[in-house]
Amino acid sequence: MPRGDKSAYTDKQKRQAQHIEEGYEQRGVPKKEAQRRAWATENKISGGGKKSGSGRTHHS
């Protein structure tokens, strides 16, 4: 998968990133930078990409 390919994300993750991007743009951040920040934020929130729920536990 090439860098920047968003096909590995769920529809919900894509919607959330779009919403985050709009928020950055309203604060005056340029479009491209807003998009970069939005995906970075979404990755931080969700861990990035599609993840199946079953068997995915966090061990500390």
Rank of each mutant, 00 (worst) to 15 (best):
P2E: 08
K14L: 13
Y24R: 07
K12Q: 05
A34D: 02
R15T: 01
G23M: 02
G53M: 12
Q26D: 10
H59Q: 10
S60Y: 14
N43V: 03
R36I: 02
S54D: 10
K44C: 08
H58A: 09
H59Y: 15
H19I: 10
A40V: 03
R27T: 03
A38T: 01
Q16M: 14
Q13I: 03
E33N: 06
R3V: 10
G55L: 13
T10Y: 10
K6T: 01
E22W: 07
Q13M: 09
R36M: 04
Q18V: 01
K44E: 10
K51R: 15
S52G: 10
A8W: 09
T57N: 04
S7P: 02
G53F: 12
Y9F: 15
K44G: 08
S46E: 02
G48P: 06
G49E: 11
Q35Y: 03
K6E: 06
K14R: 14
G47S: 07
G55E: 07
G47E: 08
W39T: 02
A17M: 04
G49L: 06
D11R: 12
R56L: 11
Q16G: 01
R27K: 15
K51M: 06
K51Q: 15
M1I: 07
K6P: 04
K32R: 15
S54T: 08
M1Q: 11
E22I: 05
R36Q: 14
G53E: 13
E22Q: 13
I20Y: 00
S54R: 14
E22N: 09
R36P: 00
K6I: 01
A34L: 06
K14E: 03
S52P: 05
T10P: 05
S7M: 11
H59F: 13
K32F: 14
Q13P: 01
W39A: 00
G53H: 08
K51L: 09
K44D: 13
Q35I: 00
A34Y: 10
T41L: 14
Q35D: 07
D5G: 02
G4Q: 04
R36F: 11
P30Y: 05
G4V: 08
T10H: 07
A34P: 03
I20R: 02
S54L: 14
H19M: 07
S54H: 13
Q13G: 01
D11K: 15
R3E: 12
T10C: 07
Y9W: 15
I45G: 00
A34T: 02
G48C: 05
G23K: 12
T57R: 15
G49H: 08
A8T: 07
Y9S: 00
R56N: 10
K14H: 13
R27N: 05
E25N: 02
H59V: 12
K12W: 08
R27A: 11
T10S: 15
P30I: 00
Q16N: 03
E33Y: 04
I20M: 09
V29C: 04
Q26Y: 12
D5K: 04
S60G: 11
A34V: 04
Q13K: 03
N43Y: 06
G28L: 03
E42R: 05
A38G: 02
T41Q: 15
E21I: 00
G23N: 07
